[in-house]
Amino acid sequence: MKKKETKLPELQFPNAELLPEIVKMLNEGHTITLRLRGFSMRPFLEDNRDKALFTKPILENLKVGDPVLAETMPSHFVLHRIINIEGEKVTLLGDGNLISEHCKLEDIRGAIVGFYRKNSPTLDRIDGRKWKTYSTVWMKLRPIRRILLGFYRRLWIPLFGAI
């Protein structure tokens, strides 16, 4: 007998409405899986394809290289990687961005446990070897990111699709 698959409906809301509610739930101790929107973490995380598993951040445990959900301005949230922490000042940069953003440590609203990429049921944890290797390499390539991202957008995606 075949097992019947149940497809759960997905709802979409503007980030400005949804993310404050997500933050409330994180602060209550819930973990949340959320489909990603936007291109700031390209090339490895894609808009409307990949998902992130969020948890409440433990601020003293955050370190350079960690991807986080931050509120950089009131009701403006970004999922970026921490590239620098100086006291309470945090510098963020999306993997697909060339310009950094800033916030305070207290503005970090969510920590990332891992990502579900390419509709895989397996979580790629940020403390796993795969993510750590990718992160180390990608952060060292920052001086030539503009070239790599241009190649990815203009040639790779049209020929092969998103990676």
Rank of each mutant, 00 (worst) to 15 (best):
L79T: 15
L123M: 05
L141E: 10
I85F: 09
L141C: 08
L19F: 11
R81L: 01
L155V: 11
E21K: 14
D50S: 08
K3S: 01
E71V: 12
I144M: 01
T133G: 15
Q12Y: 07
P67A: 03
M73C: 08
N27Q: 15
G38E: 01
V68T: 13
I83E: 10
A52Q: 01
R81N: 11
G161L: 13
L45A: 13
Q12H: 08
L148S: 07
R154Q: 04
K63Y: 01
G65T: 02
Q12C: 01
T6D: 04
I83Q: 06
L36D: 13
S40D: 04
F54Q: 11
S120M: 09
P158R: 05
R125I: 02
D95W: 12
T33V: 14
E46Q: 14
I82K: 05
L59W: 03
G94L: 06
E60P: 00
S120A: 08
R49Y: 11
L98T: 08
R146H: 08
V23S: 05
D127Y: 10
D95E: 05
D107W: 07
P9D: 14
D124H: 12
I58G: 03
I82Y: 14
L155F: 11
M139S: 15
K24S: 12
E71F: 04
T91I: 07
I144S: 00
I83A: 03
K140V: 05
K51H: 02
P57E: 13
G38T: 02
S120Q: 10
E17A: 05
G29A: 10
N119W: 03
E21C: 10
V23T: 11
K130L: 15
L11K: 08
T33W: 02
N119Y: 14
W156F: 11
K56E: 13
E71P: 10
N84P: 03
M1H: 04
I112G: 05
Y134W: 15
F54R: 10
D107N: 15
L123D: 05
F115M: 06
D95I: 00
I157L: 06
E86V: 09
L34D: 12
R37W: 00
G128H: 03
V64E: 14
G29Y: 06
E106H: 02
K104Y: 07
M25E: 13
P121C: 07
G110L: 00
P57D: 14
P158H: 07
T55S: 13
S120W: 05
D47G: 02
G96Q: 03
R153I: 00
L19Y: 02
K24H: 05
G110V: 02
E17Y: 08
S135Q: 07
T122I: 14
G150C: 00
I147D: 10
T122L: 15
G94R: 05
C103T: 08
N27V: 02
P43A: 08
P20G: 11
W138E: 09
T91L: 14
L36R: 09
L62R: 09
L141N: 08
L79G: 13
E60L: 03
F44C: 00
A162M: 06
A162E: 15
S75M: 14
T133Q: 11
A162P: 01
R81M: 02
Y152M: 08
R153D: 11
T55M: 14
V137K: 04
R129G: 02
L53F: 07
L18H: 06
G96C: 04
P67L: 03
G110Q: 00
L69N: 05
L141H: 09
F39M: 04
F44Y: 10
A52P: 00
N15S: 14
M1V: 07
I147W: 06
V68N: 11
E10M: 03
